[in-house]
Amino acid sequence: MLSRTADNLFWLSRYVERADYLARIIEATNRLAMLLAAGDGSSEWTSALVTAGCYDAFVAAHGAPTAETAMEYLALSEDNPSSIRRCLETARFNARAVRTALTVEMWETINGAWLELPKMDRSSFAGGRMSRFTDWVKDIALRIDGSGHRTMLRNDAYWFTRLGFYVERADNTARILDVKYHILLPEVSSVGGGLDYSQWAAILRSVNALTAYRWVYREGLRPWLIADLLILNQELPRSLASCYANIVTHLDSLSNAYGRQGKSQRFARTVQTALQNATIERVFQTGLHEFLTRFISDNARVGGAITEQYLA
């Protein structure tokens, strides 16, 4: 297939995944901020903006974050290149450029979302309606993901779409852990009270894993177990290990179909092996933050290798 087509598919998925992730961040932060004393959610919104990678730009434009300004910036801002609105617009732009590689179902979902978008404004999530907005975004991501899964031919177009989802998802999971890593450190948790507990729950909620945690560990929230679940657990679809199992599988499908291996396969397998051999004890010993920083840069290198090998 055309390199440009593959590139568009890869980024289409990345932007959809990012929109979904932002919706979860907004939701989790909102819940957490409400638990705190009235008027003091600003540190939570600060960390949400940091997680989304747009804190500096936000402060330059709006000063210290409040719930309203941060939420609007993350969800609807035209100025923020990775707001949900801009993610969905970019996804649709990419989709329109490669309509021929999409199934009707995928196209209609993306286009339908884009047609709804102009109706979304501050009033869409004012008061108690915020969750309706985030549910709408999550539903779109679910439908795009699902329609792709159900209707696309299992060929290179499909694999590039999947690779986009997993590379972005791995990045998102690692970032949310990295921003929150300090509350997961053992010394902090030892003095932790109710607030820590809510923060841990918020992390899990933002990757849709609160219920999963209980099924896997069947005990109260423990920070190292949360890290274990999100980093090393193969069963959790948003864990780093699970993302890499999928990345390796789809890259292998590509190299089998094309009859040639390359840098991206090698890099991805190296990252996967490191995750398979890690234990959560050793991750904490070497430093959670250091581990995550290295993972984020490795993941970016895999993305770069995919681009170089196939998309450029």
């Binding site: 055309l2 390199s3 440009r4 590509l254 196939y310």
Partner: peptide, 16 residues
């Protein structure tokens, strides 16, 4: 931009 010419022959850039 997906096309280029080499030795008066037209090619397209693909993933392969």
């Amino acid at each position: 931009r997906d096309l280029f010419i080499r030795d008066d022959q037209v090619y397209m850039r693909t993933t392969e």
